Computed example of a mutant assay.
Amino acid sequence: MTPVLEFDRVGFAYERQPILSGISLSICAGECTALVGPNGNGKSTLARLALGLIQPTHGVIRLFGTQVHRFRHWSLIGYVPQQVAVAAALPISVEEVVRSGLAGQLRPLRRASSTQEERIEHVMDLMGLQQLRRRRFSQLSGGQQQRALISRSLVTTPRLLFLDEPTSGVDTEARTALRDSLEHLVSIEGLAVVYISHDPAGFEGLARRVLEVRDGHVRPAPGPPQVSSALGAVA
């Protein structure tokens, strides 16, 4: 099986200051990988490299077998950054936030197709947003807002999803709801998830692998692996 994401001896430096060095990493479909480590050690930089937002100093990055600088099928990639600005003053509903994920696929004045409408409904069901669809986004709790933003990234049916600190500032109930939804996406729909977090409670029982990013390198995190029974059989 071709990995959805490959890092082959990748390094990155910012203004000649090394940030990442010799990163080799492979992620396959139906796999959740958690990236942990102290702030400032390169977790978010690794995601930005994979998304083609910045270029490696050396090494090769591939998405679905294609080098990232030649990759064009960006609807296959979902990304929820650590902080997403949605103007609180705008009277935008939860459903409108979710639909905005299709903006790159729809021409002006074109309506979503029946397949896209079905996907919107499926994602909102999965993330527990149906009862909130008419609610103004600014009126939601932090956990509800995060689920809406993740839903927005899922409406294009991505095969690889990056989540940067998705449980930051949310309560235990919200973490559990998010984890349950992600487990369905990974184990049932075969989505590959890269979960960047300093919060072990957020990905406990979900991540097949926990990798630590520290001092420019990626290595297995110390301690027992966080593997759930639902994902333990994934190759």
Rank of each mutant, 00 (worst) to 15 (best):
M1V: 12
T2H: 14
D8I: 14
V10Q: 05
G11K: 04
I27R: 02
C28M: 14
C28P: 08
A29P: 02
L35D: 00
P38T: 06
S44Q: 05
I54E: 07
T57H: 00
V60Q: 11
L63E: 03
F71H: 10
H73Y: 14
W74D: 08
I77F: 01
V80S: 01
Q83N: 08
S93K: 05
S93W: 09
S93I: 03
V94Q: 09
E96P: 09
V98N: 02
V98Q: 08
V98K: 05
R99Q: 13
R99G: 04
S100T: 13
G101H: 10
L102P: 06
L102D: 07
L106P: 01
E117S: 15
R119V: 12
L126A: 08
M127V: 04
R135D: 03
F137W: 07
Q139N: 13
Q139S: 09
S141N: 04
G143S: 06
A148E: 03
L149Q: 02
S153L: 00
L154Y: 07
V155R: 02
T156G: 01
R159L: 01
L160A: 02
L161F: 06
D164Q: 10
T167F: 07
A174Q: 09
A177E: 15
E183T: 13
E183Y: 06
V186S: 03
E189F: 10
V193E: 01
L206S: 06
A207R: 06
R209V: 10
E212N: 12
R214S: 13
D215Y: 13
V218N: 01
P220E: 08
A221M: 07
P222W: 12
V227Q: 12
S228A: 07
A233L: 14
A235W: 10
A235H: 13
